[in-house]
Amino acid sequence: MTTAAATPPSTRPATMTTAPIAAAERAATRKGTTMSRHALSVLVENNPGVLARVSVLFARRSFNIDHLVVGPTEDPKVSRMTIVVNVGTEQLHKVTNQLDKLIEVIHIEELDDAAAIRERLWAINDNGPRPVGAMAAAWG
């Protein structure tokens, strides 16, 4: 895989910025827990329906997905999902545990710094369509 030559857009579309974060902040205040954004890099089997299965799990367990990108890896049988969630630490632990139970989920890793996330987001999709760029930009 090569790192994309394109640079992330310097400004993000207005629709991508405040709305989800504000909603998440409201939810955090309501629950009285400290929520923060976490990016999960999830390797999944490249099977039909796997995206539905992952998103159904998030919905079923009441976890909101802030951002989601799916792309290929060098192995055609494996896809990578990069999922950004706004949750507390305990909730993060629960959601990864539930995710790990899915038969088609091969590996889960939390990406811990913005630069790595930006690189990963661009690396997984060399063509750099807008949502990916927007997501990387949204991260920082």
């Binding site: 039909p48 329906g49 539905a52 299965r53 159904v56 799990l57 079923r60 038969i103």
Partner: peptide, 14 residues
């Protein structure tokens, strides 16, 4: 039915 049963099975295949 594969999708319908996703949240209520350990796994579902088509």
């Amino acid at each position: 039915i594969r999708s319908i049963t996703m949240p209520v099975t350990k796994h579902s295949f088509l």
